[in-house]
């Protein structure tokens, strides 16, 4: 029983009228895991989360929480809590009453509620604001109250809908670490819905990348970054160069010239795109592709360079700021792409 996943989604589909929001989605979240649903807006990640919380019912498939089938269970009977993107703090209740709301529904007695609210305010590092109303709080404070409120009933699974979306940049980074720390301390499973790949990569143990109602890939952040399963994942996560061409005798041939082909089971003559991360494109003095530096952008520890190849294609190259001489616009540059630095994708999938 302990080996059963905490959340198990099996073949779930959901349609709204003519729109297919989810198409045969399956995934599992383990106990104590920090899981992220990542994808562009409209990919179905929010719908999936609402299905788990019980606000929508799936058209097909089933959702199990701790081995228990959730079909037909209304939101108030699920051992799941949700932190809303808008926070959805009750404007007519104080911070204390907001956090105590779920505890009161559980029928906890007064001392227990007092203790639990105090404990949660401690956890989210927010004390002394118990009596305030939500409209008297800053954005960051509201976010913490929402988190405390969702954690208060002690859910087995916490869903977080774009938890950092409403925060400004600096606060977001700080809060990322706090969220992770709280999750580690409580050993509650977290499922974060986000469109921000940096957020997902920084926080999650595992990520499911979604697109148009389907899951494209599930894996650890490094795995998804280094071995994207589909061209969509490759382009959605991080920066990626794509060079069109075809396979010929173990080489990848295109307008740009020829490169050693990465390992592949595509047949000879097959059309494909060669995908390579900017940091894996290396300047060289040996064999390589010739181009001219078109733009140089300085980003602190990293320099981004845009190089136009003789064939007209653009390659993005990034280098550590301390790596060798500075390039400037108009410079000639020769670039090498090692076979093990790149990956091949056929045009679709």
């Amino acid at each position: 029983m302990t080996d059963a996943p905490l959340l198990s989604i099996k073949g779930v589909s959901k349609r709204f009228g003519a729109v297919t929001a989810l198409d045969d989605v399956s995934l599992e979240v383990a106990r104590g895991e920090f899981f992220a649903l990542l994808g562009p807006s409209g990919c179905g990640k929010t719908t999936l989360m609402r299905l788990v919380a019980g606000f929508e019912a799936p058209d097909a498939g089933r959702i199990e929480i701790a081995g228990e089938d959730m079909s037909g269970a209304p939101p108030h009977r699920r051992p799941v809590n949700l932190m809303f993107q808008s926070y959805a703090l009750f404007p007519h209740l104080s911070v204390f009453e907001n956090i105590a709301f779920g505890l009161r529904r559980q029928g906890k007695d007064k001392p227990a509620i007092l203790a639990r609210v105090a404990e949660l305010l401690e956890i989210v590092k927010l004390t002394g604001v118990e009596k305030r109303r939500p409209d008297q709080l800053s954005g960051g404070q509201k976010q913490r109250v929402a988190l405390a409120r969702a954690l208060a009933p002690g859910p087995r699974l916490l869903l977080l809908d774009e938890p950092l979306g409403a925060l400004d940049r600096q606060l977001r980074e700080e809060t990322q670490f706090q969220l992770k720390e709280i999750q580690r301390k409580l050993q509650t499973s977290f499922v974060v819905v986000t469109h921000d790949q940096d957020e997902a990569l920084a926080m999650a143990d595992r990520i499911a990348v979604m697109r148009a109602g389907r899951i494209e890939q599930i894996g650890a952040p490094a795995e998804i970054y280094e071995r994207p399963a589909t061209r969509f994942v490759a382009s959605f996560i991080g920066q990626m160069n794509f060079l069109p061409g075809r396979i010929e005798d173990g080489l990848f041939v295109g307008a740009f010239g020829r490169l050693p082909a990465p390992p592949t089971n595509l047949p000879d003559g097959a059309k494909a795109a060669l995908a390579v991360r900017p940091e894996r494109v290396a300047p060289t003095t040996d064999d390589g592709l010739d181009g001219i530096v078109e733009d140089v952008a300085f980003r602190g520890e990293i320099i981004h360079i845009r190089v136009r190849l003789a064939s007209g294609e653009i390659l993005r190259v990034s280098r550590g700021a301390d790596q060798g001489a500075r390039a400037s616009i108009g410079d000639r540059m020769r670039l090498a792409i090692a076979a093990d630095a790149a990956q091949l994708f056929t045009d679709e999938r």
């Binding site: 919380a53 209304p74 108030h76 949700l82 959805a88 009750f90 007519h92 779920g102 969702a150």
Partner: peptide, 26 residues
């Protein structure tokens, strides 16, 4: 905001309680 009612339901309130505790006061 209907998400307030959803939040109440999520925190364990039945539809009737969510209405009485959240919607009606608002």
């Amino acid at each position: 905001d209907p998400t307030l009612e959803e939040a109440a339901a999520d925190l364990g309130a039945t539809p009737l309680r969510a209405f009485i505790l959240v919607t009606l006061p608002l």
